[in-house]
Amino acid sequence: MKETMRAAVLRRYHEPLQIEEKPIPVPGPGEVLVKVRASGLCVSDIHIQDGKIGTVHLPYTPGHEMAGVIAAVGEGVDPARIGEHISAAIDIVCGECEFCRTGRTNLCRSLIRIGFERDGSHEEYCVIPAKNAFTVDPTIPFEEITGIPDAVGCMYNGLKNQAKLGIGQTLLILGVGGLGMNAIQIAKLMGATVYATSRKADKLEVAKQMGADAVIDTSCEDLRTRVAELTNGRGVDVVLDNIGLEWSINEGVYMVRPGGKVLVCGYISEDFKVNYQEVMKFEKEILGMRGMTRQDMAEVVELVNQRKIVPYVYKTVPFEQINEALGLLRDGKTKGRVVLLFPED
């Protein structure tokens, strides 16, 4: 094995990432070395580049949607794992706090995240705890595997655990894109009726292909009027807000039925305000969500292995084009996840 690798390094906020040579890390006890084959780009990468995530310390390598092959193992890890195709759970957890003990590992009090508080997958090799490496069927394309721990997993956690979406319920997705395309598939699997919104007709076309029952073009249709028509004035059971602006959360609150839930996923605005009376009188709920639990990860891997969920990938680009790809994401010129591909050798 060679001694150095290429890595995308963020040295200063508001500047492009630098492609640099770094030593290939060595896995310690309980760790594995992953040869990264694909790494997904996320809006969080933009927030990190803009200095909006305070737990990040420069210089460092971002990337939290990893797909690859185990290339080496540290002490205490079965050497038979070498060669496994894996997806990496983002959260490194303590396993001992009250949240870990009760299965809510995504809220671990000692949480460290791959691609946030420690170097991530925008590099040719990455060391992670062996417990974070989940084996995936080798027939699944690497670019699809990248979506498991975030683009799919986050939506799965939100809809299953927080919203408790079920058979016969209705879901409205505000801002269908990299996350929303996967949310459509998950919601349909749960037996729900799905409505998706966007200001871009091409995204709505993809949403219909993913299984959306109806789409709303908010560039030319009144959102509240259309939702009232689709639900016969009842309102939807759940709104998934993938936009994260004050107006989007308020729209969600008004469009859910009494007792309905607004699931907050997008996080552009730092704060928001809503009509207190609307929430109080009609027992509406605003729910946060972050990441996924370890159990969610295991379930999503199985659903992907069975092809019951096919993570949506809009575009793949060579690793060297990371800054151009981030520019597309920043300018809103994508219809879903953009994934970096690394050469096999």
Rank of each mutant, 00 (worst) to 15 (best):
T4Y: 10
A8C: 08
A8S: 03
V9C: 09
R12T: 02
H14V: 03
E15P: 01
Q18I: 11
P23V: 06
G30Q: 12
L33D: 00
V34G: 05
S39Q: 07
L41I: 12
S44P: 01
D45Q: 01
D50A: 14
G54T: 14
T55L: 00
P62D: 07
E65D: 11
G68S: 09
V69M: 01
V69A: 09
I70F: 04
I70W: 00
G76A: 13
I82P: 04
E84Y: 13
H85F: 08
A88Q: 09
I90M: 05
I92M: 11
E96H: 15
E98V: 06
E98W: 11
C108D: 03
L111E: 07
I114K: 15
R118Q: 13
D119T: 12
H122C: 04
H122V: 07
Y125Q: 11
P129C: 06
K131T: 12
K131H: 13
N132L: 14
F134W: 10
T135C: 13
D137G: 05
I148H: 06
D150I: 07
A151R: 08
G153C: 10
M155F: 00
N157D: 10
G158Y: 04
L159W: 09
N161H: 12
I167L: 13
I167T: 07
G175N: 08
G180E: 11
M181D: 02
I184P: 01
Q185D: 04
A187P: 08
K188I: 09
L189V: 05
M190I: 01
T197C: 12
R199C: 04
G211E: 04
A212E: 05
I216V: 12
D217M: 07
L223I: 11
L223T: 12
L223G: 11
L230V: 12
L230Y: 06
D237H: 14
L240F: 04
D241A: 13
G244D: 01
E246F: 07
E246A: 14
E246W: 02
I249V: 15
N250I: 01
M255K: 02
V256L: 06
R257N: 10
R257H: 10
P258M: 00
K261V: 15
V262M: 01
G266N: 06
E270W: 09
F272T: 15
V274P: 05
M280A: 15
K281C: 12
E283D: 14
K284E: 11
I286P: 04
L287N: 13
M289L: 13
M289V: 15
G291I: 05
M292N: 08
R294S: 11
M297D: 06
M297G: 07
E299T: 12
V301L: 03
L303D: 01
V304L: 01
N305L: 01
T316Y: 04
V317N: 02
N323I: 00
N323Q: 01
A325Q: 05
D331P: 08
D331C: 11
K333S: 09
K335F: 02
V338S: 11
V339S: 12
P343K: 11
P343D: 14
